[in-house]
């Protein structure tokens, strides 16, 4: 299979600000592709360029075989887009909005009614189909957004932070739907929620300050960038003792970084041999009560923070 999305040196400038800086990317057909980056990294800008809603300052990109800078109707027939905060006509009913979207794609009559029923069932909002969109909750809007994005059975589906505003149950449901789209269409999904990306995406690109940092499969990233990590869970620790312990760990040559998340220390390690005995000694000397000590496989979040936020965090 070929690539559904190809970017070559894609640049977007807003005055003096370079929002996207020479992005090179190839997204395989049928994959669920995660586009990661902190807020303001250029994720939404890239999606706007790839969907033809903005024009590149330089470089070129093709989506589903069409040049994105041509304002092509043919391109827009083959793609769909869901904004991170989808906005619809509040006066429309849910089913009416889907019919409107379908008609814009040239679907009419019985085919349209069938397709509307299908996407309503798929996204789980059939019961709310006759309610006005203005009365939908945030989660229902997101489901409606996904329904309208699927109405044309697109080749490429762009999702900009599709689950960031949902509660855990809503996120689970929507990610399950996205997961089910694998291999039937190409999904290009931006997010800063790394667990979600890790759960559904085959490949991942990380961008920071408009520049591509890395692009690989999740497994490749873990193999390439993963440094061993030790998780230490402490209990009712004196903050002063904990702070002193953090300082001592940071000063060690074998430590690549240390991060504290509530009662959990995550210690990145350069040298497993030295760290094995030294870390235990530091913990014992610190007086901090330890309830768990575990070597773990780094997750995408660890890799992301290391690549984006620098070496200080793990």
């Amino acid at each position: 299979m070929g690539d559904a999305i190809v970017c070559q040196g894609l640049v977007k400038r807003y005055g003096e600000v370079t929002a996207l800086d020479h992005l090179d990317l190839a997204v395989p057909q049928g994959s669920v592709f995660g586009f990661l980056g902190p807020n303001g990294a250029g994720k939404t800008t890239a999606i706007r360029l790839l969907t033809g809603l903005a024009r590149p300052s330089d470089g070129q990109a093709e989506v589903a075989g069409y040049d994105v800078s041509g304002d092509s109707i043919a391109l827009r027939r083959r793609i769909s887009y869901l904004d991170q905060q989808p906005h619809f006509y509040d006066w429309m009913r849910g089913s009416e909005l889907l019919e409107f979207a379908g008609q814009l794609f040239g679907i009419h009559g019985a085919a349209l009614r069938t397709r509307v029923a299908e996407v309503l069932a798929l996204t789980g909002i059939a019961d709310a189909a006759e309610r006005k969109v203005g009365g939908y909750s945030g989660g229902m809007r997101q489901r409606l957004g996904l329904a309208q994005a699927l109405i044309n059975q697109p080749d490429v589906l762009f999702l900009d932070e599709p689950v960031s505003s949902l509660d855990p149950a809503g996120r689970h449901d929507l990610l399950t739907i996205i997961d089910g789209l694998r291999s039937t269409i190409t999904v290009f999904m931006s997010s800063h929620i790394l667990a979600d990306i890790e759960r559904v995406c085959d490949r991942v690109a990380i961008i920071n300050r408009g520049r591509l940092v890395v692009e690989a499969s999740v497994e490749e990233l873990q193999a390439r960038y993963a440094l061993p990590i030790v998780v230490v869970q402490v209990e009712q620790a004196d903050p002063a003792l904990l702070e002193a312990l953090l300082g001592r760990i940071r000063a060690q040559p074998w430590a690549s970084g240390v991060a504290l998340d509530r009662d959990e220390l995550r210690v990145g390690i350069h040298d497993r041999v030295d760290a094995g005995s030294e870390l235990l000694r530091l913990l014992a000397e610190s007086g901090v009560p330890v309830v768990r000590y575990e070597h773990v496989r780094p997750n995408l979040e660890d890799i992301f923070l290391r690549l984006v936020a620098g070496e200080e965090t793990v």
């Binding site: 969907t51 033809g52 809603l53 109707i73 827009r76 027939r77 793609i79 769909s80 887009y81 904004d83 905060q85 989808p86 906005h87 619809f88 006509y89 979207a101 814009l104 794609f105 040239g106």
Partner: peptide, 14 residues
């Protein structure tokens, strides 16, 4: 302002 223009113009409408 409301984002509905982007919703429509990302679809095949000139």
């Amino acid at each position: 302002e409301h984002g509905t223009a982007a919703f429509v113009l990302s679809k095949p409408a000139t």
